[in-house]
């Protein structure tokens, strides 16, 4: 009888072992890039860790336990210098996902085409603020899943003015979370946008749309003559003006070289404001935390359902426009632990 029990245990363990072995290779191969492109590959997978409650605090204790993926960003223009490496972490609770992104930037640029007072008149600066974007396909997208951002980028034309981002088909959309140091960060948000197919082939921006807005949002700080700002902030040293904290412009209070922010900001209410954000520039680097509901309930948004793996891309704009931004060259994969 004992002999039999021994055999029983042996066979069952063999079966268990074989079946779990069979299960093994699958587990690793979900990230498709990992197996092929060698040493740098594992960092293309961002593993979100499960936590109790998420915040936009970049120093929250759980970030110490979240694996850091260091991804490289490359210029979209041939021959231009690469961008910074971005350290990405992710965490999720039952309802939300947070992503923590950290990248080196020697200059903090938190003004976007601001007004400058030269003592007698205003002039509009051409300087742009720092920006960062995270891009996910909303529908399953074979091209983006294997190529990453390049799967949404149309930069084959010799003339960069004709480059555009978006999809070739209206049935295949992208979800874009765009964080801007100048206009979205002060109100604690990143702008929730989506991209579809080009609506007007002549308009390179016509594939990109902001998500629906119920109320809020910023207004341009410009006077009727359009030669200067209409308002100034109560705190003249601040790089932004929040709605309610502005007074009509009074040039007598301005010193020469004073900078007036170009918009009066207010948080977006509605689908456009789905992404909370908090970014801090310190010691030559930006640390930004993005926080969004896994399912916002809005049609223009990707629904995240762990444990499904999602392809994504990240772009960094070092006070530069769309053509000059740098993006992750390979597809990144968001996984869940």
């Amino acid at each position: 009888m004992q002999y039999k029990i021994y055999r029983f245990v042996l066979l069952i363990s063999l079966l268990l072992w074989l079946t779990s072995c069979a299960a093994q290779p699958e587990a690793g191969s979900v990230s498709t890039v990992a197996s092929s492109s060698g040493a740098t590959a594992p960092s293309n997978t961002i593993t979100a860790v499960k936590v109790d409650t998420l915040t936009t605090d970049s120093a929250a204790a759980y970030w110490a336990n979240a694996p850091v993926s260091t991804v490289h960003t490359k210029a979209t223009e041939k021959g231009k210098a690469d961008g910074p490496d971005v350290n990405i972490q992710a965490a999720y609770d039952g309802k939300n996902i947070a992503m923590r992104l950290e990248w080196a930037d020697t200059t903090e640029s938190n003004l976007n085409k601001a007004w400058t007072w030269d003592g007698s008149k205003f002039s509009r600066s051409k300087d742009l603020g720092d920006r960062m974007g995270v891009l996910f396909p909303i529908e399953n997208n074979a091209n983006f899943s294997s190529k990453g951002c390049a799967g949404a980028c149309h930069n084959l034309d010799a003339d960069p003015e004709k480059w555009w981002m978006g999809s070739e088909s209206a049935d295949s959309r992208f979800d874009l979370w765009q964080w801007t140091a100048a206009s979205s960060n002060p109100v604690g948000q990143a702008q929730d946008e989506w991209m579809g197919a080009q609506e007007d082939p002549a308009d390179m921006e016509s594939a990109t749309h902001s998500d629906a807005l119920k109320s809020g949002g910023s207004v341009s700080n410009v006077n009727k003559a359009k030669d200067g700002p209409a308002f100034m902030g109560n705190d003249l040293s601040a790089s932004f003006i929040i709605t309610g904290e502005q007074t009509p412009i009074d040039t007598s209070k301005l010193t020469q070289g004073a900078v007036i922010p170009p918009s009066i900001l207010a948080p977006w209410v509605g689908s456009r404001g789905d992404v909370q954000a908090k970014g801090v520039w310190k010691d030559g680097k930006w640390v930004v935390v993005l926080l969004r509901a896994l399912d916002t309930g809005n049609d223009e948004d990707l629904v995240l359902t762990p444990p499904k793996a999602y392809p994504l891309g990240v772009a960094v704009f070092d006070h530069i426009d769309l053509v000059g931004h740098t993006t992750t060259a390979d597809v990144l994969t968001l996984e869940w632990k």
Binding site: S29, T32, S145
Partner: peptide, 14 residues
């Protein structure tokens, strides 16, 4: 497991 959707033009997939 479910890998990403099939892409015949992918060069990286092993």
């Amino acid at each position: 497991p479910l890998a990403f959707p099939a892409n015949p033009a992918d060069t990286d997939y092993s």
